Measured scan of single mutants.
Amino acid sequence: QEVDTIELTRQVKEKLAKNGICQRIFGEKVLGLSQGSVSDMLSRPKPWSKLTQKGREPFIRMQLWLNG
């Protein structure tokens, strides 16, 4: 299904801030990505339709983390 990447990243940033989790830790533990990649993804999320399967994976992980 289509994911609203802008809304998703907004919710993730909100939860990170609320729980005092830094992007570096979130990136390493949840997404398996560097802090730079995570920062870029959270500040400039690409539309779901423009992402490859590999590009979608971190957003799917974010969704699971939010719902977890």
Rank of each mutant, 00 (worst) to 15 (best):
S34L: 09
I21M: 10
N19C: 13
L64T: 13
E28I: 04
L33M: 12
E14F: 02
R10N: 14
Q23F: 04
G55S: 11
L31E: 02
K29G: 07
K15V: 05
L66T: 00
N67A: 12
G55Y: 10
E2R: 07
D4H: 03
M62S: 01
D4K: 09
Q53V: 10
S34M: 12
F26I: 02
Q63M: 09
N67I: 03
M62R: 00
L66P: 00
S37Y: 07
F26M: 02
K50F: 08
Q11N: 05
V38N: 03
S37I: 11
R56F: 01
D4E: 10
N19E: 15
C22W: 07
N19Q: 14
R61H: 02
R61F: 00
W65T: 00
G20V: 02
K18I: 10
S49D: 05
Q63W: 12
L16P: 13
W65V: 00
E57N: 11
G36E: 15
T9H: 08
K15Y: 15
P47D: 07
P45M: 04
T52V: 12
S34P: 15
Q11G: 07
G68H: 02
E28T: 12
R10A: 10
K54P: 02
Q63T: 07
L33E: 04
I25G: 05
P47M: 09
G27A: 15
K15R: 10
R44Q: 05
K13I: 03
G68R: 08
L42W: 08
S49K: 14
L16A: 07
K50H: 07
N67K: 14
F59R: 01
P45G: 03
M41A: 14
Q1L: 06
A17L: 08
L33P: 02
I25Y: 13
T9E: 06
L64M: 11
Q35K: 12
S49E: 08
E57S: 06
T5W: 07
G55L: 12
K15M: 08
R61Q: 09
G20Y: 10
K29S: 09
T9P: 04
A17T: 07
G32C: 04
K50M: 13
E2D: 04
Q11D: 04
R24S: 08
I25R: 11
I60G: 02
S37K: 15
Q53A: 14
D40S: 09
T9C: 10
E14M: 15
E14V: 06
R24A: 07
G36S: 12
N19I: 15
E2K: 11
L16N: 06
N19G: 10
R24V: 06
R44W: 10
E2T: 10
N67D: 06
L64I: 06
S49T: 09
R44T: 13
F26H: 00
S49L: 05
K29I: 01
T5Y: 06
L64W: 06
T5L: 08
N19L: 15
G32L: 04
T9W: 06
R56A: 02
S39P: 09
G32E: 02
T9R: 06
S34Q: 09
K29C: 08
S37H: 14
K54I: 06
G32D: 03
Q1H: 01
G20D: 04
L42Y: 02
S34K: 14
G36T: 13
F26R: 01
F59Q: 00
G55Q: 14
R10C: 06
I25M: 14
I21N: 04
A17W: 04
L51R: 00
W48D: 00
A17D: 13
W48I: 00
C22N: 06
I6N: 10
S34I: 04
M62Y: 00
W65M: 01
D40I: 03
F59M: 01
K54Q: 09
D4Y: 02
G55I: 15
R44P: 03
R10T: 12
N67W: 11
Q63H: 14
P45Q: 02
S49F: 06
G68W: 01
G32K: 10
M41Q: 07
V38D: 07
I25F: 15
L42T: 02
I25A: 13
S39Q: 13
R24G: 05
L31K: 05
K15N: 13
E28Q: 09
